[in-house]
Design a protein around this nucleic acid. Structure first.
Lengths: 171, 171
DNA sequence: ACACCTTCGTTCGAATTTGAACAATAGGAG
DNA sequence: CTCCTATTGTTCAAATTCGAACGAAGGTGT
């Protein structure tokens, strides 16, 4: 009975062609912590954003990344890439945000197929309004719970993990 | 233009009642890495599990936790808690797994309202079958990318984060 | 110019997720 | 025992997600 992704106590003696290297206790603890923290954190941020600003976390992130982009606008595909979401998922959310007046669509001059999503004045306003509460919570629940060293490890280690995943995905 | 949850360069000078402590570069990097790694990892694990075993990550996790539980069974509420999912969401997934013959429902002797979800023989089999590939991927994408020290930090730091969130949620 | 393969964003249907409402039961105070 | 409140798991409608299929263009090699 393999646990999440390791062998709790008794690794299956002979189940698959190649017996994988199961996770030891420490590896298992790291993996479980990661998954659980991520889920709990998401749940919390989702609830808070919805309550205080009527936005989902996804929608908030769209506003954030547009705001950080050169002209407050990004191509759909690029945005989907940054957000790590499906293209169709983004199409849906941008449409929602468009209905709310927070984002607009503009066609790309150099590529007829291309579509820019761009932050509207209202969108900018909304972000200014929502950000403080969001940041405060992220700080309270994650950042301020960790030491400076732990944060550095997160940034480095998980940065590396992300980089690798991005490379793989590109294939 | 506040970034994800910090002020990229120029924090809004006077937007909200109380100006929050924005995230500095390092804090921001940690937070972004965490979110991105989590999303990319989920995406990948999801795809692999679906392809190789026809299971979603959620379903796989249900099997895992049941397998690790005392009698291969857990109360619905407890399971939902462990998985960090809504009760209704769990009801749905357990029903799906039941249709697949991987999980069964049993009523609780001491509490008429209670329902135990329990792993069937087939469910156990499925888990044995799916685990190796899943573990191998988790190892390749996360565990083996990090050093022993980094893993320890993940376990400790994020463990703490999870613990705090659990406490809060209990209120 | 011509075929050929890739990329872009959307649409579609199916699957999943969530919160609120609900009926049934548990558990404790008086 | 009798209210009163909390908990349990399900149902429901609504929102969101994804992948596959698509039509339309871009880009390349010949």
């Amino acid at each position: 009975m393999p646990s999440t992704s390791s062998a709790p106590s008794a690794p299956p003696s002979a189940a698959s062609p190649y017996e994988p290297r199961w996770l030891d206790e420490e590896e298992m603890a790291a993996w479980r912590s990661f998954v659980t923290a991520s889920n709990l954190l998401n749940r919390r941020l989702e609830r808070q954003l919805k309550e205080e600003s009527g936005l989902s976390h996804t929608q908030y992130e769209i506003l954030v990344h547009l705001s950080a982009a050169p002209a407050g606008s990004l191509r759909m595909t690029e945005l989907a890439d940054i957000l790590v979401t499906s293209k169709s998922g983004l199409t849906y959310q941008v449409t929602q945000l468009e209905k709310m007046g927070l984002v607009g669509r503009r066609s790309c001059p150099s590529d007829v197929r291309g579509v820019f999503a761009e932050l509207t004045e209202q969108g900018s306003e909304m972000l200014r309004e929502a950000a403080p509460g969001h940041v405060a919570l992220v700080r309270e629940l994650l950042i301020d719970v960790l030491t400076r060293e732990q944060l550095a490890v997160l940034a480095d280690g998980l940065g590396q993990v992300s980089a690798r995943l991005r490379l793989d995905d590109a294939l």
